[in-house]
Design a protein around this nucleic acid. Structure first.
Lengths: 246, 246
DNA sequence: CGGCACGTTGAATGCCATCAAGTGGGGTGG
DNA sequence: CCACCCCACTTGATGGCATTCAACGTGCCG
């Protein structure tokens, strides 16, 4: 079996750096301590300290922050191949919570696991740093969306970005992708009400741009949707200048 | 002269790690290549590559992203002691722009400068990583504000966070602080219109909570303002568990 | 069968954007 | 020295987008 297929993280990093066999097996070794989590039960709670970091192997997770008045803002969704709580394991108690959206499987990694891996394969460190930098670029783009985009462009942009991320690990393409999120998840992520998300989705459907139904997103006119959303994916797929070639 | 006073970065990091004399002089050495920038002329333009990183020594800068329709979202403000473009110097072309809000002074640092400094004083690396992590926590909180807070709480929270940051480098306290921002800056940062920012500021003034006028923010009732804004500053001043003591 | 979660739709309210007009200070040039 | 302009701020009027409240439909599961 090709290790790329068994391991979404390798697939993601491999899209930007040509990974050697050694590097692939080091990545695979990081996946040893597997743990399972059930949908809906928080993996890490806001304010908790001393928790591990994870690499998500299968399933979807969201990171969010709850406010005093009960409203919730979803910061980001994690899909297979993504890190989870990477920063907080090194430095601080967690300032937000993680909730599995579906049952999922994740590999627990400690700070020392990572340090050992980086010593054995320094290019991995740069690749992981690249991934972290990409995550932050997505966070910035998320802020722009919530701050400055109209509701329909915001929803559209979100779906397109998600698609690009999923495509990188083989879980989607320009036709569409499977998506376990509810309209409530979209609302909490996009700073909208669930009712309004529903209306926006109906509008996208009626305009023959995209359909989100039965846990599946289907793009009917990808290019026009991207135009309407102002979607420019350069912030997602910059390659690593430092690591062009081994 | 106490090096802490001459150097806001030392002061900021020194609030969380006890820095030795050696570490202080290494930090001071990073400030060698000083450059000046005039207000309003972009320091780094969106899409530009191959630029340096900076440590801001005096003045204010904002990082922002412009959209196709001309609207602008300010990502963050940089105040003395903050890094500027740290991530992009290591990894990628810049995905956003930097604009000096007032004339300011910054020290240019290259990736290799940093690496050398970190080799000489490894605890500095951890401290800088801590600062970067704090920046990201602020970005998350910014997203929460734009996504989930009403306009008055959003403005109030922004002013309170800014105050905490400035206090760390000796530029503010619970009474208030000097602030060169215009209402347009607030609007672009908070996802509001400038007209509405003006109304919100008036309301805060009339409710005797805070006044922002003539480049100065004055808190009249800090505690009530913090309560109204839901401001909880734990995300700002977590100390570094790894570096409690040398 | 009832309960529950998610989705869907209608109606009314309201927050905030937009348009418009006007104030006042600071700088520039005649 | 004054006219002029520009920028930041201010305030009012209007309207729209999104929220809120409410009700109902549907599929799933105990």
């Amino acid at each position: 079996m090709d290790p790329c297929d068994s391991n979404p993280l390798s697939r993601k990093l491999g899209a930007f750096v040509v990974l050697s066999g050694d590097e692939l097996s080091i990545l695979a070794a990081l996946h040893q301590r597997r743990r399972c989590f059930v949908a809906g039960r928080d993996l890490v709670r806001q304010g908790q300290s001393q928790h591990a970091a994870y690499i998500l192997a299968s399933g979807w997770v969201c990171s969010y922050k709850i406010q005093a008045d009960g409203s919730r803002q979803i910061i980001d969704f994690q899909i297979p191949g993504d890190f989870l709580g990477l920063r907080s394991v090194l430095l601080r108690t967690s300032d937000h919570s993680f909730e599995p959206i579906v049952d999922c499987e994740a590999a627990e990694v400690s700070a020392s696991d990572l340090i050992v891996a980086f010593e054995q394969a320094p290019r991995l460190a740069a690749a992981v740093l690249w991934a972290a930098s990409r995550d932050e670029a997505m966070l910035v783009e998320h802020l722009v969306g919530v701050g400055r985009r109209a509701a329909d462009a915001r929803v559209a942009h979100f779906l397109l970005e998600l698609c690009s991320r999923l495509a990188l690990v083989g879980l989607g393409n320009r036709e569409g992708f499977d998506c376990p999120l509810t309209q409530y998840h979209l609302a909490d992520a996009l700073g909208l009400s669930a009712v309004h998300v529903n209306r926006v989705l109906r509008s996208l459907r009626e305009r023959k741009l995209a359909t989100f139904r039965d846990n599946h997103v289907c793009f009917h006119d990808y290019d026009q949707l991207a135009r309407m959303a102002g979607f420019d994916d350069t912030y997602l797929d910059q390659s690593l200048p430092l690591l062009r070639r081994p």
